[in-house]
Amino acid sequence: MNSAKRAAVALLSAAAFTATAVGTAQAAGRWQQVPVPTGSGNVLAMTQIDQHTTWGAGFRLITDGDSTTLTPLLLARDDRAGSAWKRVATPADGANSRINALSADGARNVWLVGDNDSATDGSILTEHWDGKAWQTASASVPDGTLSAGFLGVATVGPRDAWAVGWTQRMRGDDSYETGLIEHWNGKAWQQIKLPAAVPDTELFSISATGPRDIWAGGVLTDGTDQPVLLHYDGHTWTRATVPNTGLYGEFNTVVAAAPNNVWAAGRTLVDDKDRGHPLVAHYDGHSWKTVAAPGTGVVNAAAVTPGGVTVVGYDKTTSQSYGEQLDGTGWHSLNLPTVGVDSTPYSLSVNSSTVTVGGVYTPDETSPFQPLILTASR
């Protein structure tokens, strides 16, 4: 089973989309498509860095003849200045990488993380914003790494951040992928050993309520294709017990609001013919329990919202965007529109007044894919 999260940050092409569901951003009424000031690309991550400012990040696809290159993309919107998004320059502009994830502990402590680059000795791209200036910091990878990247990052404090992802290496004549955890100690990124009880895995997301309460999620790559959750208590990473979710599955996103309010979401497959059902689980401070979610599809991003959680993703069965919100009265559809001939949400930000969804869409059957941002009032 291919990982849904890795597919989200893979090199996309227009041929990867099925041109079946035609719609407009106005189809849902309250949703509005916001112009994105760049060409072909994808908005893979989103977060609010202060009360008024939201950042979105991902990559631009640069085509030059027969060659294509991915370069980082960072966008910002200040609601005091209207609804427009603006490009933000960083030192990594032009690098052969992407921004796969971002995390903020206020407007003066923001981390962006991406992939490794052979031009920089194979180290992984990370960038830090302190409110005034950018700093680049390379994260080393294990010896023998063929490819690697961070897919999640959690900013805990001024000298404390965690990032998770994957590495691809060789075992004999075969390549294999396993998880990567690194910690920023204020001076450098340090590789952290995975728990002994965790076999080969990929880690897609990480979230923290504090330095002694951090969760990471992903999928086992040992052939079982089972979802996995790890927890850090300030001293040790351990593997958490995950409820039975189906034949296969993965957690693409983990969001923690409090030690007794953590959500993980992704996809589960009930049999070999299943194209995916949303997988949602909640931790109440004692144990993880699955929460039945409506419909079919895969969850790519989540946000903790009053009384529950909001999730977005894509439904391969219906070729429609997937979006649901759970509160004290149950699940409610976000009625996400399909923009162009196809669109897929990969990122989400929710504040007291606005829901913002980022991702990718294909305008028509012949045009390259474009970055997508949708907004709606709450």
Rank of each mutant, 00 (worst) to 15 (best):
W55C: 07
T20E: 14
T53M: 09
R87T: 15
N96A: 13
L75F: 00
L61N: 10
L74W: 04
K86S: 15
H52V: 11
A57Y: 02
A19N: 08
A25D: 09
F17G: 03
Q51C: 06
T47G: 06
K86P: 00
T68D: 09
L73V: 06
L61R: 12
A19G: 09
G39P: 03
I99L: 08
A45S: 11
A81G: 01
L61Y: 10
T68W: 09
K86Y: 10
D66Q: 13
T24K: 15
R60H: 10
G29D: 10
G29T: 09
W31F: 11
P37S: 06
Q32A: 13
A16G: 15
F59A: 04
A27V: 09
G94T: 07
G39I: 05
T53H: 06
W31D: 01
A19F: 04
R77Y: 01
V22C: 09
W55G: 02
I99F: 08
A28K: 06
R87K: 12
L61W: 10
T47H: 05
M46R: 02
R60C: 12
Q48A: 11
M46P: 04
T24D: 13
V22R: 12
A15C: 11
T69V: 11
N42C: 13
T54N: 03
F17H: 08
G29L: 14
G82Y: 09
R87N: 14
A76T: 03
Q33T: 05
G94Q: 09
A19W: 00
T90W: 06
D66E: 12
I99P: 01
L73P: 02
D78K: 00
G41P: 05
P72N: 03
